[in-house]
Simulated scan of single mutants.
Amino acid sequence: MSFVIEESFVKGKSLTGLCEDGWVATPDYVVVIDGATSKSDYRIDGITTGRKAMEIISDEVQRLPSGISASEFVNIINERIIRYYKTNHILDLVEQFPETRLTASVAVYCHSRNEVWLIGDCQCKIGECCFKNNKKIDSILSELRSFVLCSALRDGSSIKELQKRDIGREFIYPMLKRQYLWQNNLDDNSEYRYIVLDGFPVDYALIRIIPVGDRSIVLATDGYFDLYGTLQETEQALCHQIETDPLCIGMGCDKNNKSTKGVLPGNCSFDDRTYVRISCF
């Protein structure tokens, strides 16, 4: 069996800033990468930590041996990130301040194992079945942000005013920074902990491993609320969502489509996005 990439697309939310999403393919892997939105002002040569994480992972994937397991994949990527911290003398910094870590989520198709791995909050569609790996803390904070903004709209604020100053995002921002307490947390089994690639040890049980039983696979970042069988359908759904609910608080066609951030003035979406469709034969 072999595979081909039928469609691929990457687009940043901003027309000016560097996109923190990306994807890379080798004969055995297709990897979609979502560099995490930075919660600090820390930059590396002017580049956000999410962008740097995406670049490092993209480079390392091209060196991966064929047929490794999901846990081996995590170990190899994390070792590369740790080497970067040490080489650039920032290991003490990232240990003390987790918000400065190079952090990313990935969706991986491993051809030789016929599996998709979700590490962090990327997503996939296999045949007609969609799989998400959302963090519970994001769901809670998205609801809270939605409540704050819906209340402001009811009090007379306009959508455009709230796009310019997202008081819902401001309200949840301290808690967004506090979520790092649960990032790759190995100390307990709290429902709030979550897995990412940031160079530090992970709980392998939090990797979502999905056997591929269909010839059609879509890998994507969480810049899409919903995935469809083609890029055109997926983009059309996102555009409709943004047109009807630019604040991303569940005012559009799907009340469940809420986010911790909305579409800022001048931006084309609420987040960077990547879509890759694969056919196996």
Rank of each mutant, 00 (worst) to 15 (best):
Leu64Gln: 04
Gly12Leu: 01
Val218Arg: 02
Ile242Thr: 09
Val30Asp: 07
Leu197Ile: 06
Pro174Ala: 07
Arg208Trp: 06
Asn75Ile: 09
Lys255Asn: 10
Leu181Asp: 15
Arg273Cys: 11
Arg154Ser: 15
Leu186Cys: 14
Lys52Tyr: 12
Leu91Asp: 15
Met54Gly: 09
Ile68Ser: 09
Lys160Asp: 15
Glu115Gly: 08
Glu233Leu: 13
Trp117Pro: 10
Val202Trp: 01
Asp226Cys: 12
Thr230Ser: 15
Arg273Lys: 14
Glu55Ala: 10
Val108Met: 07
Ile56Glu: 03
Tyr192Arg: 02
Leu264Cys: 15
Gly223Ile: 02
Leu162Ile: 07
Leu231Lys: 12
Leu219Val: 04
Gly199Trp: 01
Cys124Gln: 04
Tyr109Leu: 07
Asp271Pro: 13
Asn184Phe: 03
Lys135Val: 05
Leu64Ala: 06
Ser69Asn: 05
Gln183Ser: 13
Ala205Tyr: 08
Leu141Tyr: 05
Ile90Val: 10
Leu102Ile: 01
Thr260Ser: 02
Ser259Trp: 03
Lys125Cys: 08
Thr230His: 09
Arg145Phe: 03
Asn133Arg: 01
Glu170Cys: 06
Thr230Arg: 05
Gly223His: 00
Ile159Asn: 07
Ile210Leu: 14
Glu79Pro: 06
Lys261Cys: 05
Glu7His: 06
Gly12Tyr: 00
Ala237Trp: 00
Ser146Arg: 11
Ser269Lys: 00
Leu18Met: 13
Asn133Val: 00
Ser66Leu: 08
Glu243Phe: 14
Trp23Glu: 09
Ser142Arg: 04
Val74Asp: 06
Lys39Ser: 12
Val108Thr: 04
Gly17Leu: 15
Val108Lys: 02
Val61Arg: 01
